[in-house]
Every structure is written in C-alpha cells, then in structure tokens.
Nucleic acid binder design. Structure first.
Length: 583
RNA sequence: CGGGGCGUAGCGCAGUUUGGUAGCGCGCACGGUUCGGGACCGUGAGGUCGGAGGUUCAAAUCCUCUCGCCCCGACCA
C-alpha cells in the first residue's frame, strides 16, 4: 500500500476525551473513530489488525476441531425469555421493538441461540460432541463504556460453545479450549495469565479467565511467584493466617472509648496512635453491615475483617448462601444498629440487638487484643477478642493481597492488574435443561446436553495489545497482529531515492511481506513520527546519503539501533526478522 | 444511579466572572524558501458558539429546560 493513497488520518494532538494509552494511540494513529459513546468505526488500519487477530483465532479454532457458524445479532425476545435472562440481564440488554410491537434485542452473548440451533438438530448421542464458534458483534448497554476499545457497547467477539454427552466429556472440551486459547494468546504476542475466576451470571461452576497483564487493567489478579496458581482477587484464596490457640490471658478487660469523628479505619488508627505510636490498622476490626434478599425487606449480616483488609463480597455471598450482597445504606445501619456507619461493631448496645449472622475473616479470629466499633456513634471498644467479647462464624472472607501465601505451595502471591481478554466456562446443563436441549443416550434415555462456552474479546484484545506494547512515540505491534509488517520510508524529494525505495517496496511485496510504502511528499520528520505512531514492526529507510553508499537502513520499532545493509540484502533481512518473530 | 468536568472552525483550546461586530495554535488551500525526527514566510477558506425557550436595545457570555461526551465510584459473560 502506498501511504500517499491510503486512508490513514493520523493526528498530532491528543484527543481530549482519551485517557488510556490504547485509546489515545488508536485515535491518533488513524485506526478507529468514535461515533457515539462506546461505539467505534474501524478505519483501514484498525480493520487490518482485526483481521489479523481473527485469522489467528480461526486457524487455531479450526485446528482444534471447532466449526464456524454465524448467528444473528438481532434476536427475538423469546429465546432469552426461555432461560429468564430477558429479565436477569436488565438494562444491559439493548432492547428494541419491531413495527408490530414485538420484543427484540441485540445479542450480548449467544448461549440461548446456539442451544436452540443444537436442540433442533441433535437427537442422539451419536451426533455429539460438537464445538461451534462465531466471530460477531456483540451489544451491551454498559453502565459506563470507557477507555476506547477496552469497554464498548458494540464490540467484536469470538464466542464458542461445546456440546457433550456428559460432564467428563465436557471437561475434555474445556481442556481442549484451554490449550487452544493458550496457543492463540501466545501467537497474539501477549503477556497473560490464566486465572481462576468467578463464573458470574452466565452460570456454571468451572471457569478461567485469560488476563492480559497491563497497569490499566480493570481486574485485580494475584499470581504465585513459585507455582502456576493465579486467580482473580474476586475468588483468590490464600493460606489462612496462623490459627492455633489465641492467648487471651494478657488481654485487658474490654473498654468503651470515646472516639469523636473517627469514622474510618484511618481515623481510628490516628486516634489510638496518639496513645501508642506502634498502633496500626492490623489491630483493628473493620465491621461492615451487608444486606441481601428483597429490597423492601432485606436480611442483614455483619462482616468482620481486619482493618487493613477488604471484604470479598463474592466470598461473603457464597458463605451466606445468597446470590449477592450489597453494603447496607446509612439509613439501614441506623435502623438496625442504632448507630452511624463508621461505628459499626459486633457488640451491640442495649438499645439495639443485632440478630443477623456475624461472619469474621480468619485473621480476625487471630487477634487477641483489638479495637472495633462499639455500635454506638462516636465510640469504639478496645481490648476485644473474638470468642471472649463476641461470637462470629469464622471463614476466609477477605480479599487476598500481594504478599499473602499461596494455598498450593506456600509461595508468595504477587498482585497484577489484568484486562480480561478471554473467559472459558463449563456451563453444565444450565441452559440445556431450561431449554430442553436433550439427546437420547445409548440406554435410550433422554438427557440434557452438557455445555461449555468460550469467549474472546477481539476488539478488546486489539486495545490490550497496545496497552502492553507501546512507548511515548506510539504503538509497538507484535509482528503477528501488526497492520503491516514493514514500512518503507523514502526520504526527501529526490526522484532517484523515491524510485529506488519503490523498487525495495516492490521486492518486499513480491517476497510476501505486507508492506506500507511512505511515498508521501512530506518532510522526513513527519514520516518518522507517523511510522513510530502507527507502530509497524520493521522500518526500512532510504535517503540520499545511504543510497550513495548503496545501502538502506533497517530499524525495529520494538527497539535497538538502526542497521545499514546493502540495498540488495534488505529483503532478506526483513524476511529474516519476520521469520524470527513467527517462531 | 451518585459525585465531578466539558460542549466555541476538521483537531486542541482562549473568550463566559463584569452582555457590546467570535479569537489563537495545529490542520487545510495557494505561492515561495526548506528537506534524516511533526520546518519557515506570505496569502486565504472555514464557526447554527450542542439544542430549545426566556431576559435584554443587544446573549458564546445571564436565567430555565434539554441533548451529548469524558473522568471517579456503583455496576459489569
């Protein structure tokens, strides 16, 4: 492609509304444009990258035995109504009506549709297993689209679904996909971790996320420095804090202390540090009132963690045996405990009795002499201990943090931020039983098909790759997904230089190298800046000076110095670099 | 949904406090000089000031309503 004829509208200034590196660079490099909140156009460069990514996806999925299909994006409501997700999905579903008033929506994911496709055709165990996938736009009315392509309302996704006769076979499909995904993410040139994750509202029990490591990631994950264990902090486990008998013999009697204005752990610590400089949040108990169940008559439970820890709400909900919990409002705290939020504690005052469940993290059980809220506005207790001053059910309840010990091997856990690039699930019979997708087994009995589903956010990965591979000047694409493998710069207006550069370009194209030829009537600086911004991995530069020596220059966008080669060797050098990147 | 911010030329912004003929930089067009890291000089085109209503002799500026976008949080296969 000749740059002079290409539609690559690069921009010098940073667009006002972009904050994240990938968003800024995709906009500046002329890859994408926004036409509405969370809705983007793919310009030629962007579309080329997308095609590179989907090409890799298709190659690996086809090789694993999966077959590509294409389902509609526009869906009649009846399918989601069948499984209840028409209601469960709430505002996230992009809903619309046809001219007759019939309910429709745009597909946020396609479990129901593919299950219907299968149930209509599959009658016998002989027709299983099946693994189907598609690459298609998905629609979600996100509460808050953000960061360009990282969280959109319309986004390209590869979704795959497996159908097996029993759970063992389904596990096999899941493992196959897990390995396929690893090959895909490796080929995309991404630094990632496969982590244990929450299955969320899609249902099912076993799932893993493919997290692309990046500072700007929305997800917090931990990974063991010693073994393979890695998990989203939503579900991460850590070795329990040293249990054993807590020695209470030296713990003084509980004492009510007036702590004016000390509503946060920070303020409480500051207050007690006035008397004892060594006092820290590790000696406090943070008490939080949670609500669950119906909004109009919720049930309350109290969660206790050490002051320097955070409650893991997913663990709390699971322990309580409910779908989800939410923090009680200030009004609810006042009604239930007769004190203000900030002074909540497990030991209630006589004017209020708390009859809900009290759940404490195991680290709280290890405290022999702690400070906690007194459930009385402006007061805290000091010298309290679980088992002596109050009772609670003890369970791992807190969010795992860096420095915690791995449950598998005892190694130290490290914290990362990650971008969820892929998610694989074993769904079991969650959808097939609701939708009556059954087959006849060898014994002639009808039974529900066992399913799995596997997603990869294609547009999101395009942005994630940039979050991971860029510098101040622009993008540094991995070779496998770069819009072009090489760019040839012809410097100056010199016709001879231009002609020679054109010949290098022609020979590269002939050698099968995807090449962009910057033949524009621009000053050298502009061409260098654009080449860096767009991020093409290999840059070949020809100027008057190098031409006079019969040489051209090759430089890698990823770093290193520019090297001069005889013009006749340039093609071989470029193909060598591409070959090395492939292996 | 809660909190904060922003809508003025294609892009980035000033002008709004204190109403009085809409400006700057980049980009764009033309001419000239320049040509290995986003050149310089000159000339020029380009704006319903997000939209609607109101106050006023007069509104980008004041008032009311409304739409859109961004950030933090809540939320999120």
């Amino acid at each position: 492609m000749r740059f002079s004829q290409a539609f690559i509208p690069t921009v010098k200034e940073v667009p006002k509304d972009a904050v994240d590196a990938s968003h800024i660079l995709l906009l500046r490099g002329g890859y994408i444009r926004m036409i509405g909140s969370g809705i983007y156009e793919m310009l030629p460069l962007g579309q080329r990258v997308l095609r590179k990514i989907t090409h890799i996806l298709r190659e690996e999925l086809d090789a694993s035995g999966a077959q590509e299909v294409l389902m509609p994006a526009l869906l009649p409501a009846s399918y989601f109504q069948e499984t209840g997700r028409w209601d469960v999905y709430g505002d996230v579903l992009m809903r619309l009506k046809d001219r007759r008033g019939g309910d429709y929506h745009l597909g946020p994911t396609h479990e129901e549709i593919i299950t219907d496709m299968i149930r209509r055709e599959v009658k016998s165990y002989r027709q299983l297993p099946q693994m189907l996938y598609q690459v298609q736009m998905k629609y979600r009315d996100e509460p808050r689209p953000r960061a360009g392509l990282l969280r959109c309302r319309e986004f390209l996704m590869k979704d795959a679904y497996s159908f097996d006769t029993d759970i063992e076979a389904a596990r096999g499909s899941y493992e196959t996909m897990r390995e396929t995904y690893k090959r895909i993410f490796d080929r995309l040139g991404l630094d990632y971790r496969v982590v244990e994750a929450d299955s969320g509202s899609i249902g099912g029990d076993t799932s893993a996320e493919f997290q692309v490591l990046a500072q700007s990631g929305e997800d917090a994950i931990v990974a063991c420095t010693n073994c393979d264990y890695a998990a989203n902090v939503e579900v991460a486990e850590a070795k329990l804090d040293e249990g054993g008998e807590v020695d209470l013999s030296k713990t003084p009697e509980r004492e009510l202390v007036e702590t004016p204005g000390a509503k946060t752990i920070e303020q409480v610590v500051a207050f007690f540090q006035k008397r004892d400089e060594s006092f820290s949040a590790k000696r406090t108990i943070k008490s939080l009132l949670y609500a669950h169940g119906p909004e109009d008559s919720p049930t309350f439970a109290m969660a206790l963690v050490r002051g320097d820890h955070d409650v893991n709400e997913i663990k709390l909900a699971r322990f309580l045996g409910v779908d989800e919990v939410r923090l009680a409002s200030d009004q609810e705290v006042g009604r239930v405990l007769r004190c203000k939020a900030g002074y909540v504690g497990p030991i209630t005052q006589e004017e209020a009795t708390f009859d809900g469940r009290v759940v404490a993290d195991s680290s709280v059980a290890a405290l022999a002499d702690a400070v906690c809220g007194a459930a009385k506005t402006q007061y805290h207790y000091e010298h309290v201990a679980l088992g002596r001053d109050f009772e609670a059910e003890v369970t791992p309840l807190r969010q795992v943090v860096a420095g915690d010990r791995c449950t598998e091997c005892g190694g130290v856990l490290e914290a990362y931020r990650g971008i969820e690039g892929g998610h694989i699930f074993i769904l079991g019979t969650h959808y097939s039983s609701k939708m009556n997708a059954t087959f006849l087994g060898e014994d002639g009995e009808a039974q529900p098909i066992v399913m799995g589903c596997y997603g990869i956010g294609v547009t999101r990965l395009m942005a994630a790759a940039i979050e991971q591979h860029h510098d101040d000047d622009g993008i540094q694409w991995p070779m496998s997904i770069a819009p072009f493998e090489a760019v040839v710069l012809a410097l100056g207006k010199d016709d001879e230089v231009k002609e020679e550069a054109k010949q290098i370009y022609d020979r590269l194209v002939e050698a099968g190298v995807q090449t962009l030829f910057d033949d524009r009537d621009e000053r050298p600086g502009v061409k260098f800046k654009d080449a860096d911004l767009i991020g093409i991995p290999i840059r070949v530069t020809l100027g008057r000076r190098t031409l006079d020596q019969g040489q051209a220059e090759m430089k890698l966008r990823s770093g290193g110095d520019a090297e001069l080669y005889p013009i006749g060797d340039i093609v071989a050098q470029v193909t060598r670099v591409i070959g090395e990147a492939d292996s």
